[in-house]
Structure formats: structure tokens, C-alpha cells
């Protein structure tokens, strides 16, 4: 089983200057081992999205280092960062963010377009993923012809298309009702069981409780890390992985 580190943040700071400097992240140190499921909670404005953007290589820190998939993001140029983002990270957003003029299948195939994967390979791969998220009968639907839950499942399929080591989900169920929410979260579990590293931002305790641990953010700092020893999950794969990372200080808050 993979026991490497998927994401590592060392003393990360992100400061915005709007007249007065705003420390969106103020010294965060965090290790996320491969194949783990981490939830991030915290009040609005505590820096959750900022953290996701850094891990997702969309942004660079003002200070500190961010290592994703073994690469130090701060030393990469824009093009290299984009490549890393395209191949190593999969995004799931609260507002789904599907391309409105592309069908479900084309949306899922889109990330591979930018990796110069051939059209038929791309479509086969997209069809396979849509099947895995239970949408094989919706491949040619446009996003506006799909329900919220279906859209989020398309987005999840898209996030997985390049076989990322880590899936980032920023309040993925924020726009979903309870039933569709649990559908999507079940899928997260499924992909987690299959070995994908999951990092999920949420406001809601019951969503966070599906993870192995919850990182609580407050004012740009890690307030505490809550290990969920018994998350009510019985998967052997999970159990094995958890055993694998035990004692490695899976996630540690640096609160100074």
C-alpha cells in the first residue's frame, strides 16, 4: 500500500494586501499521507479555500513550502504548476463548475484534452468514469439537463479522469439536498477505498465524519486535528491504510 506523502505544507503563509494585510493562512504545517481521507472544517473566512487553492496548485504561498505529489510547488513556474495541477490533482467545487456548452461526457473528457490524449481514448475513459459514478445513461446530457447531484457526480468523474493522487473538494455538498449529498459522499468513500487521497472542506459535521481525521482551521491557523479512530467505516482497505500510516504523525497542527 502506498505510504508516501501526498501533500505536505511547511509553515505556509498566505497574505493578501488590501490596505491592511490579511493573513488568509498564517503558518500552517500539515502532512497528508497518500490514500487518506481528511476533512477540513472551520468558520467562513478561516482560510479553507485558500488552503485548497494552494494544495491544488492554483496559487502559491506568500511564505513556506507546499509539496504536492513530491514536487515543491513554490519552485515551479506557472506552466509546470499547471501540468502538476492537471495530472496530480482533481477538483470538485461547491458550484460544480461544469462547462455549460459541453455534454457530461465532454466535461469528463476535458482535462485529458489538455494532456493531449487522443479523442477516442478520452471518450472511452470518460464513459468508464461516468459509469462508475452511475451516469452511463446521461453521457450526452448537457449540464443544465442534469440535477444538482448528477452534476456533482459528473464533476467527480472529471476530477478523477487523469488518475490524480489527490481529490480536493471544496464544500462539495453545499448545494445538494440530503439524499443526493449522501450519494456523492458514498462515491467519495468508494474512491477513497480505491486508494485516492481525499481532502474535503465542509461546514457540516456529518460530512466531516466520513473522513479519517478532521483539521479544524481558525483565522488561518490549524486550531486542532481531530483523529476519528472509529468513523463507523468497516472497509478493509481503509483499515489497512490506516494501519500503514499509524504513528507517522499523519496530520499535525502547527499552532504557534
Amino acid at each position: 500500500m502506498a505510504t508516501g506523502t501526498a501533500v505536505s505544507l511547511q509553515n505556509v503563509r498566505k497574505t493578501y494586501h488590501l490596505g491592511e494585510p490579511v493573513h488568509a493562512l498564517d503558518g500552517v504545517t500539515l502532512e497528508i499521507p497518500q490514500g487518506t481521507y481528511t476533512a477540513i472544517m472551520g468558520p467562513s473566512g478561516s482560510g479553507k479555500s485558500t488552503l485548497m487553492n494552494l494544495v491544488g496548485c492554483l496559487d502559491t504561498p506568500t511564505d513556506g513550502t507546499v509539496v504536492v505529489g513530491g514536487e515543491d510547488v513554490t519552485t515551479l513556474d506557472d506552466r509546470e504548476r499547471t501540468t502538476l495541477r492537471g495530472t496530480t490533482v482533481g477538483f470538485v467545487f461547491q458550484t460544480f463548475n461544469l462547462m455549460p456548452r459541453l455534454s457530461a461526457l465532454e466535461n469528463v473528457a476535458l482535462p485529458q484534452l489538455f494532456q493531449s490524449v487522443g479523442r477516442s481514448t478520452r471518450r472511452d475513459r470518460a464513459r468508464e468514469l461516468l459509469e462508475r459514478v452511475g451516469l452511463s445513461d446521461r453521457t450526452d446530457h448537457m449540464p443544465n439537463e442534469l440535477s444538482g447531484g448528477q452534476r456533482q457526480r459528473v464533476a467527480l468523474a472529471r476530477a478523477l479522469v487523469n488518475d490524480p493522487t489527490i481529490v480536493l473538494a471544496d464544500e462539495p455538498s453545499g448545494n445538494l439536498d440530503t439524499d443526493t449529498e449522501s450519494d456523492v459522499l458514498d462515491l467519495f468513500d468508494e474512491f477513497y477505498d480505491a486508494g485516492t487521497t481525499m481532502l474535503v472542506v465542509t461546514h457540516e459535521r456529518h460530512v466531516a465524519e466520513r473522513a479519517e481525521r478532521i483539521v479544524h482551521l481558525l483565522d488561518g491557523r490549524i486550531e486542532r486535528v481531530e483523529e476519528l479512530e472509529d468513523a463507523g467505516r468497516e472497509s478493509n482497505a481503509t483499515q489497512n491504510r490506516r494501519d500503514g500510516v499509524d504513528g507517522t504523525g499523519a496530520a499535525s497542527g502547527a499552532d504557534r
Partner: peptide, 16 residues
């Protein structure tokens, strides 16, 4: 703009 953001988030390079 949003579509551009999506494309970049899923790996589109500036030149793409």
C-alpha cells in the same frame, strides 16, 4: 471568465 477558470483548474495551459 468562469469557463476559463474551469479549464485552467483542470489543467489548461495559458497557451491552450
Amino acid at each position: 471568465t468562469r469557463e476559463i477558470g474551469i479549464m485552467k483548474a483542470v489543467g489548461a495551459q495559458n497557451r491552450d
